[in-house]
Nucleic acid binder design. Structure first.
Lengths: 213, 213, 213, 213
DNA sequence: AATGAATGAGAATTCATTCAT
DNA sequence: CATGAATGAATTCTCATTCAT
């Protein structure tokens, strides 16, 4: 029985190894320009082996998205779990969580919408698809809760909380994306932290009940 | 020379025709899934002809990005040109301009970072690349000026004006992107205008000097 | 308009060229062991070109089957068309036709049932499939008519005419197949004509009303 | 040595198990569409194990052909062994034997000529090849003997007895094959027995000395 | 200038076979 | 003996690009 477990663990290890290799390659070249052979080489495996762990290239990509989403929900859960936290604490915790999530896998996060192509979606197993959707919804629900709390406390303006969560999320991905773009043109400076800080500073301020009418 | 000119005009006309066809195809299928033959068919030309007007597929795509950027700078110029406008007027004009830009070509706008892939960039002629960069900088400079004006008037907080412009831009693209994503999952509701309105409402409020410290 | 026609003719010419090359390769190696590259090489074309004329490998194969069937029906039509022929004449003409058909393309005829694999069938366009079926039925109907005539004249036993046609056809393909097998083992002797002569001699005799009860 | 024997027996047992699994898979999917893994799964073994019993996929297939041929020769031997039987008895016994053989393994019987591909033959060990040939010849010799007897008795026409045996065999395989084809197009009706009955009825009648000249 | 047939360099994927455990 | 993970060659098919007409 120990054997069974060890095998299982090794299998998972290898799966992770492939995913990390894939992440590096996708990050460097983008999805379409990355070949399965590139990824195999990066993982120091043969191309055929990849298919023992992932049904096809899209499934491999989807699993990376899943990985970010899983990390994100866990991280958010951890940050926001204490139901008794005040909005002031929650909004700070939320920010910290977003930084971590960005560090975890910025690129996949951005390109997650590769999955949107309906061609791609069709090929994915329903399980994966369902899980991706479930995790997305869950993450968004948690972000929404933060702003609901703030509204409940009467410390922020009464927008539709889901809309605010959307905006929060848009701002985050927009900033990450834009940072990548700027990095391409001008690789040396790396200022996402500052940009995000300022972004959310303005956002939080704009929401604040004490802000102008 | 009248003949020369007419020829030139006709050439430009055809170029535009190809670009519009390409835009339609890219919009419908995405960059990688669009073939040169698709575009040729849409333009009612033969594949070979496309190469008389564009060096290759990437150049065609880049020219579309250029087109959006050109529209964007022209539109912003027009909106913001009057140096004597107040921040209050400018910020309203800026918003109007962004809506127009979105309407002009949302999809290319979103996918502009397709060009980021360094593989792609390598193949582009320096001219095009330089022009893209120049236009981007110009557009950003104009947006920056709006917020500089606000700071000069003392009606908004003194962040770094370029950072605020970045954030403005991030928020815009983030919202557009996120809207596309939601559309995929839940195609019926289409609320970008409202989301953008709320986004910029909060942003402007957050910048407002009367907002909380 | 002459140009249009010439193009059409050349296209058809090339199509035929590919089909003949494919026939040679399939004959030498069998369907599964023949690669599209083999066929391209044999046709002195590049692999990509094959796909301009045939949707995929199966379609190419199917078109070869179609070709035999077309030849077969035309040849049978020609042999049996004169409605006033006696059974004696018809049965001789039928034999001659079968020899010609064998000469035209023995191997494809045998492997035609490659198409039976339901996997294969699914991928074929309905048009081709329908045509294959239609031609098969037509050929069999003509063969049936020969034996019906014989029964009408009262010169052969009253079996079910369709069954007799089936048997005639089975005997033919069985003989061709068996001949191929023997050729593999013992390549020098080539006796299909004689075997077929004897086969049909016995068959015709067995049908003859004057044969034993 | 009892151990030795038991081991030998067990080994043979497992070999048979693999062959039966392979037969089921080949029958369901055809040779090319069956993977070694399919067969391993059906045999409840791992792919590697198959190679402990069969040199490669072709050898496994060949061993199945051998199995049919072995059954065929044994069955024919049993049916025809009594040297004193009359042609009338022999021809009836032959028919019965053929039905049994068909029941034993119709599909492999039909596809036996898969082995003909010279590519395939090259890979087979000489032993197997020789045995296949020897069994084929033996079976054919026995069939030939039946018709020789008939000619000796003066009850059937004096064709070349080997040729008649060939025809008998061709008719059998042709009918089986054609039946399969018809089954594909029109799966419900299944009439091989009747077709074979009629076929051989006509054949025997055609051979009969009392038939027309 | 325009055409569009032809090219051929890949890309994803499969699967018979091997070999360390 | 048995396993089954890993291999990597081979195959089908696509599509950006070229070039003779």
């Amino acid at each position: 029985m120990g054997i069974q477990e060890r095998k299982e663990r090794e299998r998972e290890r290898r799966r992770q190894g492939i995913m990390l290799a894939a992440k590096r390659v996708f990050t460097a070249k983008g999805y379409e320009n990355s070949t399965m052979e590139d990824i195999a080489k990066e993982a120091e495996l043969s191309p055929g082996t990849l298919y023992l762990y992932f049904k096809n290239k899209d499934a491999l990509y989807a699993s990376l998205s899943l990985r970010v989403l899983q990390y994100m929900t866990v991280r958010l859960e951890h940050a926001l779990e204490d139901g008794s936290k005040s909005y002031a604490d929650l909004k700070a915790a939320l920010l910290e969580a977003m930084y971590d999530i960005y560090d975890f896998d910025a690129v996949i996060l951005n390109n997650m919408f590769h999955l949107q192509s309906s061609e791609t979606l069709k090929e994915l197993s329903d399980d994966i698809l369902e899980e991706i959707n479930a995790l997305s919804r869950k993450a968004l629900r948690m972000i929404t809760a933060v702003f609901s709390t703030g509204m409940g406390e009467g410390v922020i303006h009464k927008y539709h909380p889901t809309a605010v969560a959307d905006i929060f999320w848009s701002m985050f991905t927009g900033a990450v994306l834009w940072e990548e773009t700027k990095k391409m043109i001008n690789p040396e400076r790396y200022t996402l932290r500052e940009t995000l800080d300022t972004s959310f500073d303005i956002l939080y301020r704009g929401l604040d009940i004490r802000s102008a009418p």
